[in-house]
């Protein structure tokens, strides 16, 4: 097994740990900040519908991410939802790979594993490019986009591209892709808490509170009847 250079060793180990600790610290502070805002209280009586209550509503809301049929906005756009899944799978796989390469390289050493990772990264990268194009070309999306929206997306596209190149994990054949991947990962971890990418931190909170209220009032889970049903 080829030994990584000291710089690559630093980039994939100590730098990542440092970046992760920084991210954890900032996230802790951010959660503390969120909890500093007083939560509105629901005093109204329950809806009376035995199938709907605050707890069920909150879980329904939290699991909304896995229920594309629950909202017209996702139900009527299966391709868009598939893109969402592919993109987020790619990001999750890339984060996982940043742990596996330095600490358990054998788990992704086989050719099929590398191929699977590369397919996931390629798909996510393509989705990212499509989303960036949409953000630029669609006047509705362009009108709501901030520099951070463009930058975060571009950052992820580049990162996923290097994830694709780094997936074979063959430093003997050149370390550039791996070094770039780990540097980008570290930057990503540090930048995320300050950017829109930290939306996954808000998701459980925002969804929980909305679902709790709407469940208590009998709105969630949403009951619907479509034409022809």
């Amino acid at each position: 097994m080829h030994e990584p250079s000291p710089f690559l060793d630093f980039a994939q180990d100590k730098l990542q740990i440092g970046a992760l600790l920084f991210m954890a610290l900032v996230y802790s502070l951010k959660i503390r900040w969120i909890l500093k805002f007083p939560a509105g209280r629901d005093r109204q009586a329950p809806s009376g519908n035995p199938e709907k209550n605050a707890s069920r509503g909150a879980w329904y809301s939290l699991l909304n991410i896995a229920m594309p049929w629950a909202m017209p906005s996702t139900r009527n756009r299966p391709l868009f939802y598939a893109q969402f899944v592919a993109f987020h799978l790619g990001v999750a796989a890339s984060i996982l790979m940043s742990f596996l390469i330095p600490y358990a390289p054998r788990t992704i050493a086989s050719a099929p594993a590398v191929l699977a990772l590369q397919v996931v990264f390629a798909m996510a990268c393509i989705v990212g490019i499509l989303r960036l194009y949409r953000r630029i070309a669609d006047p509705y999306i362009r009108a709501i986009s901030s520099p951070d929206d463009y930058f975060s997306l571009a950052l992820l596209i580049v990162w996923l591209g290097f994830s694709f190149l780094a997936a074979p994990n063959r430093p003997a054949e050149g370390e550039r892709a791996l070094i770039a991947y780990f540097l980008l990962t570290a930057f990503f971890l540090v930048y995320v808490p300050f950017s829109k990418i930290s939306h996954y931190l808000y998701y459980p909170f925002a969804r929980w509170y909305l679902g709790k209220t709407l469940g208590h009032r009998g709105v969630y889970p949403v009951q619907r009847q479509e034409a022809g049903a």
Binding site: I34, L35, F37, P38, A39, G40, I141, I144, S145, S146, D149, K196, H199, Y202, Y203, F205, A206, Y209, L210, T213
Partner: peptide
């Protein structure tokens, strides 16, 4: 908290 989260969470 609810309003703050709604304002913070949008991913455009």
């Amino acid at each position: 908290r609810q309003a703050m989260l709604s304002l913070a969470a949008c991913v455009h």
